[in-house]
Nucleic acid binder design. Structure first.
Lengths: 199, 199
DNA sequence: ATATCATGTAAGTTAGCACTTACATTCTAC
DNA sequence: GTAGAATGTAAGTGCTAACTTACATGATAT
């Protein structure tokens, strides 16, 4: 009864399906029977791999929590202009969170139920990315290219604009009559931010 | 058995308690028995006021959905400097969403379950506030005080910074070792935005 | 070829939850 | 002070969901 995916283990199929259903229906709304059916396995097979729904949820969270995919971008950026660098950072940031949309959905809907676990993951990601961006700003301030401003608040402001954009359009499915595409939005946001921070 | 609140009707007590529990535990996680107990009434009284849990949820959403509290601010702002005006708008925006924190929590966790209803409310609020702010920017551009930029994207960028700040600190309970207070954050965000948009 | 292991089928157990029934009690208006 | 409305108590119904039991089947390794 192997599904289309060639060599995906049963365990992986369960985790992947659970991620999808938890993000769509929430922890309580996703039934183990449904997860099993969707994964193309018997319900008891799910319980042979994971002792409880709770443990399955934890494994989903641990398996799909983000790896900060921004660190390796920083060397490439060193030679770019400030505008170009910020544009690349914004693009990469949006790509990263878009690819983890399901996880972000889960984190938003289950944070009250599993505060410790989710806080930990969220903070690890956020701290990492704030730190990287803030240190870039500090470096650019040293080189007298940027005005003096609080680098960490600058990072929060910059990423905040894009996180809200993502939240609005990808989570809240905000469709505006006048459609403005992603690249134009990035360009305008970057322009405003550059104008406010460059000397 | 009247609780501390002097003249609060049974119906209001139920709605208020339901808002709180739905926001804390989600729609499925909040049992009608628990809502009743917390509200200090019998479970059947809840069902005498609301024919089903589903209808109770709808009533909660309708009752506590935001009234855009920004419109009346705009006249006051006319005479202020650009910086001062943006600071006031940011403060009022944060106050408004903070006071509706429970509703925002519910909207984030139940949007997949009740897309139509929640989209409608969310969009009504967002559209209103974007429109007001964008028209302020357009006016200021006409007066040659601001650079030329897309006013609606400017509104998204500005409010996006603050929405992310709210989301991070009030929803995700982000506590940073180096605590930066709200006013300092507002000030820095406004400074950056002003720098990027003022001529 | 046979033991082992992962998986399947089918049925069942248990507990919690939305919602109901029947009747008793309290409050309020007139 | 009594009728009628609002609320309470207590028990129960029916359903669904997590998780189990018991047994059968198919592949793989030796």
């Amino acid at each position: 009864m192997g599904r289309s995916n060639g060599t995906q283990s049963t365990r992986d199929k369960i985790l992947e399906t659970a991620l999808k259903l938890f993000s769509q229906k929430g922890y309580l709304g996703a039934a183990t029977k449904e997860i099993a059916k969707e994964a193309g396995i018997a319900e008891i097979t799910l319980f042979r791999h994971f002792p409880s729904k709770e443990k399955l949820f934890e494994e989903v969270i641990n398996t799909y929590s983000f790896l900060p995919a921004l660190k390796e971008l920083m060397p490439e950026i060193a030679g770019m202009s400030y505008e170009k660098a910020l544009t690349e950072i914004a693009k990469r940031f949006l790509e990263t969170i878009s690819s983890r949309k399901d996880m972000i959905q889960i984190m938003h809907s289950e944070i009250q139920r599993y505060p410790e676990k989710i806080h930990k993951i969220y903070h690890a990601f956020i701290d990492e990315i704030f730190k990287i961006l803030a240190s870039y700003f500090k470096e650019m301030q040293k080189r007298k290219i940027l005005k003096s401003f609080d680098a960490e608040l600058g990072a929060k402001a910059f990423l905040g604009m894009f996180f809200s954009y993502f939240n609005l359009h990808e989570i809240m499915m905000y469709k505006k009559y006048r459609h403005v595409d992603k690249d134009a939005t990035i360009k305008e946001f970057v322009k405003i931010f550059v104008g406010g921070t460059k000397k």
